[in-house]
Design a binder for these strands. Structure first.
Length: 247
DNA sequence: TAACATGTTACGGT
DNA sequence: AACCGTAACATGTT
């Protein structure tokens, strides 16, 4: 489920726990999760696909990966990987996810300007990073969390279609203006994703992801099961998405 | 309904 | 040693 915008939604749903104290910790994580018992939540934050529960001196980092799920003020039938009990029925439970602790202040650990959903997002910085990997495929570059934290496979496919760039184009082959569009739309589409997901209309707005026909020109879409170094699914229109080689 | 995927890490083999 | 492919996770969607 979780690309960056979905984690923003999680953060908002959990926002009411800020300022509250963890009364009890549950879960089958092998991390030392009991350290959170008795700690007060300073803030709920996110970086890309990371969901962060900030405490004094350390933070809980949840990554839902592909199968992860969560429940707020309810429980699934199975034991959570980690569950925080705040009392009065207030609970934050995570299942089938990666659990890690981040030591020290979050501002020291994370570069917020790399998160496409963050106010501190810095497109010029992203362009600089991209220029350093001219041989990377456009599809791989969009999935690079160091450049576009929060972008996942759906956003990748939709952005490339929006800007009419074939997923196997090389970053170094993109005209500067196209590179600018790629960076701009990585953020722009992510916010559209957020808006549509909140309204439960995300899927119906997919132009190419899991589709078979291009809505722009009616052309049968291309599909590759394992494209690029990331080996992720690619849906694209050979007709309207141009291939920019490099060299 | 069974198969597969919106993701990442850890292995083992080469 | 660096690289590559695959398993693992065990849920939600089609």
């Amino acid at each position: 489920m979780p690309e960056g915008p979905s984690i923003v939604i999680l953060k908002e749903e959990a926002a009411a726990f800020a300022g509250r104290t963890v009364l009890r910790v549950r879960g089958n994580s092998r991390e030392p999760i009991q350290r959170m018992a008795g700690c007060r939540v300073l803030a709920l934050r996110s970086w890309g696909k990371h969901f962060l529960v900030e405490f004094e001196g350390f933070s809980l980092r949840i990554h839902l990966l592909l199968f992860g799920s969560y429940r707020i003020d309810e429980r699934r039938a199975t034991e959570p990987r980690v569950g925080l009990d705040f009392g009065d029925g207030g609970e934050l439970n995570f299942y089938a996810c990666s659990v890690k602790f981040v030591e020290g202040p979050l501002d020291a650990a994370y570069d917020w300007s790399a998160d496409v959903m963050n106010d501190a997002w810095d497109p010029a910085q992203a362009r600089r990073k991209l220029r350093m990997q001219p041989l990377a495929l456009a599809a791989d570059a969009l999935l690079d969390q160091n450049v576009f934290a929060g972008v996942g496979n759906i956003i990748k496919n939709e952005v490339l279609h929006r800007i009419r760039v074939h997923p196997e184009s090389r970053i170094g082959g993109l005209p500067p203006r196209k590179l600018g569009e790629l960076v701009e739309q990585a953020r722009e589409y992510s916010f559209d994703f957020l808006r549509w997901k909140r309204a439960y209309v995300l899927r119906q707005h997919f132009q190419v992801h899991t589709r078979t026909v291009c809505p722009r020109d009616g052309q049968r879409l291309g599909y590759r099961k394992h494209l690029g170094l990331a080996r992720r699914r690619a849906f694209f229109c050979e007709q309207c998405q141009r291939l920019y080689p490099f060299g």
